[in-house]
Computed example of a mutant assay.
Amino acid sequence: MSTPSRLRALTQLRCSLFQTSYNPQGLRTGAKYLRQRLRGPSMLAYYPASLNLSRFIHQNPDMEMVNEDAEERLVDVLERRKRGKGAPKKAKDKSESRRLQKRR
C-alpha cells in the first residue's frame, strides 16, 4: 500500500502551496507563535499618549505656568546642599580625583 506515502506527498505539496512549514515528525517549531499578530501596536493604541507637563510648559512659555513638583524638587536639592548632603563635586582632572587621594 502506498497510501501513507501519497498522503505524505500531498501534505508536503499542501505546505509548499500555502507556505506553511512541513513537519512530518510533529516537532515543536514555534510556528504557531510566529504566525500570530504582533501585540505591540495594539497595546500602544490601547494606552493613551501621556502628557508630559514639564515639556508642555517648556514649549509654551507665554502661558506662564509653573510645574510645582519640579520647583519643590529644586528647593529640596538646595536645602540638601546647604546641609552638605548634595552630590559630590566632579573632578576636573586626575589630581582632584578621590581615587588618587586614597591611601592603601
Rank of each mutant, 00 (worst) to 15 (best):
G26M: 00
Q19L: 02
L17A: 03
L38Q: 08
Q36I: 05
L13F: 01
R28L: 04
P41I: 13
T11I: 02
L53W: 12
K32C: 14
Q36R: 14
L10Q: 09
R28Y: 11
P24H: 09
R37D: 09
K32R: 07
L34W: 05
L7K: 15
Y47C: 05
S50W: 09
L38T: 08
N23K: 00
P24I: 07
S5F: 10
P24T: 13
R6I: 04
L10I: 04
P4H: 11
A9K: 07
R37C: 06
Y33Q: 13
P24N: 14
L38H: 05
P48D: 10
R37H: 05
A45S: 13
F18M: 06
Q19H: 03
Y46L: 07
P24V: 13
T29I: 03
P4L: 11
Q25W: 06
Y47S: 09
Y46G: 11
L27D: 13
L51N: 13
T29S: 06
G26I: 00
R8C: 02
A45N: 14
Q19I: 01
Y46T: 08
Q19V: 00
C15D: 04
Q19F: 00
G40F: 15
G30K: 08
Y47R: 15
L27W: 07
A9P: 00
N52R: 07
P41D: 13
F18I: 04
Q36T: 13
L34P: 05
T29N: 03
L53S: 14
S42H: 07
S16C: 00
L51F: 11
K32A: 12
P41A: 14
L10D: 06
L51R: 11
T20D: 02
C15F: 01
L51A: 15
A49V: 13
A31F: 04
S5E: 10
S21R: 02
S50I: 08
S50P: 15
Q12L: 01
S42K: 09
L44V: 06
L44P: 05
Y47L: 11
Q19D: 04
